[in-house]
Design a protein around this nucleic acid. Structure first.
Lengths: 166, 166
DNA sequence: AACCGATGCGCAATTATCTTTCGCATCAGC
DNA sequence: GCTGATGCGAAAGATAATTGCGCATCGGTT
């Protein structure tokens, strides 16, 4: 993963593909103001550099049958590095856990979970999470409703910064 | 948004496009075991039904210059519906706030934020979030490191459920 | 049991897009 | 003012998307 120098065209490409990852290359090229071949080369470079990690369809989880979304705050008994790694590895194995972030402050981890219904989440909570060794405390909060869920990063903030730096 | 009956092929399509949203239709068709034309028709139907909300490139935010990721727990003075809506609307306008979920329990909202660096987050926190009317308390937690960040939903859990129902 | 409309498949042909190759322009460093 | 590196655009062949159409299957009906 080499550090890449991005020009404005690259940033536009990223912004466009973040907004619509299935855009055709010719459409993308048109929007960023270059022809298709160099545009494709830039996209490939961005992919290979790791700046673009992948492309994902944004699936409506509720419609699909995942009615429940929960944030879980987890505290561990021991914060030794090996214990932290062990817990993270567990999280990677649990399909209902979609995100796991280590935090500063009183809580060690925050988990974003989904589940088909409350009872299957409770089952996961009591049967899996709470019985995991080294887990000291778990506080869960149900998502009542979602107000905003934007994927990725705000490119307008980035552009603003770039123009100030330049 | 009509309720759609999904068969196994549809679920496979969703799973594949969630994993790789830029897959060509012919490749997708091959993987789910039908020919290209009906596969494309199914994808269009899934898009129109709202089950597929869109496609997004997964951009490496840290590489791009967003070094800081923060979870903010927000409590409001008043939880009247109009006040809740007003706060949600504010969140939608803040580019640094990527997600905003209303929670049950002591905290009213959880916000997932990104920022280029700590100082620009502090600036947002003190200059915007904390000065917003009706905001009673904000507790922030910096993400030390990310352990898991899977987009979308676990289709294997879904398949399991379906087979039990059938 | 035979009919029949609805649904959904695959094949084939057309159109659009992707991808490679090549030559040319620009620019930094010497 | 030379020279190598970089990146552009045009053209062409390969691949994929998209449309039209005929056929099979499946329920519901007579």
């Amino acid at each position: 993963m080499v550090a890449i120098r991005l020009d404005e065209i690259d940033r536009k490409i990223l912004a466009e593909l973040q907004a619509d990852g299935r855009m055709t290359n010719v459409e993308l090229a048109k929007r960023v103001g270059i022809s298709a071949p160099p545009c494709l080369r830039r996209v490939r470079t961005l992919e290979e550099s790791g700046l673009i990690r992948g492309y994902h369809a944004d699936v409506n989880s509720r419609e699909l049958g995942f009615e429940v979304q929960v944030f879980a705050m987890v505290g561990l008994e021991s914060q030794a590095e090996s214990e932290l790694n062990a817990f993270e590895e567990r999280c990677r194995e649990w399909p209902l856990v979609r995100e796991c972030h280590m935090l500063n402050g009183e809580v060690d981890f925050i988990l974003k979970c989904v589940a088909p219904d409350l009872s299957s989440f409770q089952q996961f909570l009591t049967g899996e999470l709470l019985t995991t060794p080294n887990v000291a405390s778990v506080k869960t909060s149900l998502v009542i409703r979602g107000a905003k869920d934007e994927p990725g990063v705000p490119f307008d903030v980035l552009e603003e910064r770039m123009s100030r730096t330049a």
